[in-house]
Design a protein around this nucleic acid. Structure first.
Lengths: 310, 310
DNA sequence: AGCTAAAATGTTATCGATAACATGTTATCG
DNA sequence: CGATAACATGTTATCGATAACATTTTAGCT
């Protein structure tokens, strides 16, 4: 029953009184503890239903010193990738009976980071999931985090000894993507990269480059162009690429937003996709499935981090 | 300082002892309460820094009977719309010093709903934001929620007396979209609708229909087709539409995913967009800005709900 | 000086639950 | 049949903080 009176919360005491037992006994019933006689148990359960008693997780957390709550720090949700990850985390957390306290990070300055950590810790989270892409600026910081009172799991960060890191394999994904283009017969494959101070962007770039080299294809700097993940930057990048690398017959974009721009630009110029120009993106936005195959999934993450966090 | 010893949490008592005062005084300092002499204040602050004391929000919540936490219930984050809303909520909450406890709803069955509410309430949230689209099935339920001990704000729900509802105006948006097509000279405008048991889908449909009628354009059932928000359904829908309504020169899709499919299908068939077929979507995914103007934003929501929730 | 208001700080109770310990009841067994 | 274990339940202390009330200083004024 969801009835409960708006005025005052029903506490364990009320139940105890109603059932004519001590609060401890009620607690035992609630936690399926042994050593409670059938009769008493029933009486208590009756009272619980009757009053619409709902134990306060807060109080429980305080006395047990664990909150059954995980802190999740994300970097905006502007991009679709993170938001899907969050989804996965949510699922797993649910399964394990945890709730998520979400915090959003808007910039990388150390102050903000500290503050976020503070507020999370103050709420006694049992663990923290750090789903913020690693950029040069915030890398240094992660050093100082060593002595946290709770376990922390990093996502999308370069693995470092002593830390738990869960991430999808950007490098492998990029290799697959590039290989895919090669398989389709492309020989002049360009790359629209993400900002090179992002660890993941570098990986994707390298995956692309290495694959080409391994396949015995020449790679020069005119074949790639850096974007900043946004559609707009993708549009600019493809334009430049087409200009200085006209023989290009395939492009690997470091994320789907930029890949979309390529498509749009191509159609504007009347370039046939994929006949004249094959395009592969990265991230696996569902909507883009029509255009190019989604390449990597993060489906493994929730699993892992669930385990880690516990 | 984030140093804090991994073993045991620093409590207010430790600080009190270190500073040679009572816990109450420490509390006063922490809360910038008046009536603390400069000297004492300094001593306390010194101890706080030294020990890396971090007051436990949990304990505070318990004694103050408010958690400074809002519960947010979303319906998956598969679609980009909700995730952007969440973003907005997060911003505002941050600003007001609230944290967000997020819960995800996967289906509409009453059991799940109850459970979610329970867990939120058990954590003493100060308010709940219900960001779940209204579908026939879960409508009935919202009745029973009346007697909640905390305020609740609904998003994306048909306004009803007695409830706080914050939502973007689907109807208006649809009108704008349709009008936009009319302005571009289209006269045969189709619509790919969302599932008609979604309140918002109905609104968009109606907005489209009404605008056409008002403009003196004939509207018949062959001009629209229902999808289920997914790209795939959009592809099917556009196919059917093209088939039975070949003279169509404009389409309004109820969300961007479906609109994307239209674009893709069009390019496959060699239909020029927007010359032969103008396309308008709905939701304002950033990436699609290249193709069609984003129509509605939810920027007002965070504002409102912030106010409401407090 | 004597008295009172304001300022500074300490005490105790409380929030809602659980842990640890204590006590009273039944069984069970030699 | 008495003892010892297993079962059932109640008491008290505790988690970390704040609220309410009590007490002691200090300051200001006549």
């Amino acid at each position: 029953m969801i009835l409960s009176d708006r005025r005052k919360r029903v506490t364990i005491k009320d139940v105890a009184q109603a059932a004519g037992v001590s609060t401890q006994t009620v607690s035992r019933v609630m936690n399926k503890y042994s050593y409670v006689s059938g009769g008493t148990r029933q009486r208590v359960q009756g009272a619980v239903e009757q009053l619409g008693y709902r134990p306060s997780t807060l109080a429980r957390s305080l006395s047990q010193q664990r909150s059954y709550t995980l802190g999740v720090v994300t970097f905006g949700l502007k991009y679709i990738g993170p938001s899907r990850t969050l989804n996965g985390i949510a699922d797993k957390a649910d399964e394990l009976g945890y709730m998520l306290l979400t915090k959003k990070l808007d910039n990388f300055d150390a102050n903000g980071i500290d503050e976020v950590m503070e507020s999370l810790l103050a709420r006694q989270v049992d663990g923290i999931i750090w789903d913020v892409p690693e950029v040069d600026e915030n890398r240094a910081w992660s050093q100082g985090i060593k002595s946290l009172p709770v376990p922390i799991v990093f996502m999308s960060m370069e693995p470092k000894p002593g830390y738990s890191v869960v991430s999808m394999d950007s490098y492998l994904g990029a290799q697959l993507a590039t290989q895919h283009l090669l398989d389709q017969g492309c020989r002049n494959i360009g790359h629209i990269a993400g900002p090179q101070d992002w660890w993941e962007a570098r990986l994707r770039y390298q995956g692309w480059r290495d694959t080409l080299v391994k396949a015995g294809v020449q790679v020069s700097d005119k074949q790639w162009q850096q974007g900043n993940w946004s559609s707009a930057s993708g549009a600019i990048a493809i334009e430049k690429l087409l200009e200085r690398y006209p023989e290009m017959d395939g492009v690997f974009a470091a994320n789907d937003q930029m890949a979309l721009s390529v498509l749009s630009e191509a159609s504007r110029r009347g370039i046939k996709v994929p006949d004249q120009l094959a395009v592969v993106g990265f991230d696996g936005i569902a909507e883009s499935a029509n255009f190019y195959p989604p390449l990597t999934t993060i489906s493994q993450d929730p699993q892992l981090l669930g385990g880690q966090a516990v």
